[in-house]
Simulated scan of single mutants.
Amino acid sequence: MILTVTPNPALDLTYRVPALEPGETHRAAPPAVRAGGKGLNVARVVAQTGSAAFALATAGGPSGLRFADDLEASQLPAELIPVASPTRSSVAIVDEAAGETTVINETGGPLTAAEWMALRDAARRLAVPATALVGSGSLPPDAPDDFYAVLVATAAERGIPSLIDAVGPALLLAVEAGADVVKPNRRELAETTGEDDPVEGARRLLDRGARLVLVSLGADGLLAVPRTGAPLHARLPEPLTGNATGAGDAAVAAVATLLAAGNDDPGALLRRATAWSAAAVLAPLAGDLHPSYRELEARLVTG
């Protein structure tokens, strides 16, 4: 069972418009609404592809009740830690003409010390039967920077691999704690390390303790930089258009399924992550994969 931990989940609202014109008024059908956040998206993809997943997250306020209702309806195994701050919203606007998606993410509200402790305790308890531990997503305001580092330490105590998708000090501390794999995107990597070159930025994370760095490059695919050996790159022959909101989360899910099965080969991780990321772009909502994800892996260009 792959355990995903999401300290700052969101109620995802996805609108679709024929064409997005800044400064203009748009009419749209009611949005698709689902319990989201990076770890929830990861767990959904893991479950969709036939592996066991369990999602740990927080929920609070009226939006948290709606979040909990959707999660229950999805039948995704999960546990929610009650918190006082309302669950935030994330709004995605899909421009169907351009094939592009604009996302507006609320920051979320702070958690109390007792709520952080409850979340940590639940992660330790649920890690006992887990085969891999994923920590992903933004942290709410005033969060402890070492939250993901604590998850990495928990995974190490259990003897299971850890995968972290974060940015800034939270990512650096997780790396220093010995995260097995980290997956920032190009912008997050530059923000965290100060390096615009993704290979150099990845090597900075390796020097601080990461075992493998995967970097999302958008339409250019993914980059894998291992501790030993040359960097690896994978992409499709041509870029895809669609809703890229959950593409990075699908890549994390791909890596988690292989790590949970005992496969830590950088090339295998990179290929599956790139294919599943592309399949997520073709799906209508974050947390879903287009059924062609296996075919897409066969079409990859690697080097």
Rank of each mutant, 00 (worst) to 15 (best):
V5N: 06
N8W: 07
Y15M: 00
R16T: 14
R16D: 14
T25F: 01
A32T: 12
R34A: 15
G36R: 03
G39D: 02
L40T: 07
V46I: 14
A47V: 12
T58F: 09
G61W: 08
L65R: 13
A68M: 05
Q75I: 04
L76H: 00
E79T: 08
T87G: 10
R88K: 12
S90Q: 09
G99F: 02
T101R: 06
I104M: 08
G108M: 04
A122P: 11
V128C: 04
P129R: 10
P129K: 11
V134E: 11
G135P: 11
S138R: 05
D142F: 11
D145S: 13
A153I: 07
A156C: 04
I164E: 09
G178F: 03
V182S: 06
P184C: 01
P184L: 01
R187N: 13
E188A: 07
G209Y: 02
R211C: 00
L217P: 14
G221P: 14
A230S: 14
T241Y: 11
N243Y: 09
A250Y: 04
A254W: 02
L259S: 10
R272D: 10
A273T: 10
V281M: 05
V281E: 12
A283H: 01
G287R: 05
G287A: 04
L289Y: 03
H290E: 06
P291E: 11
E295N: 12
E297D: 10
A298V: 10
R299Y: 11
L300F: 04
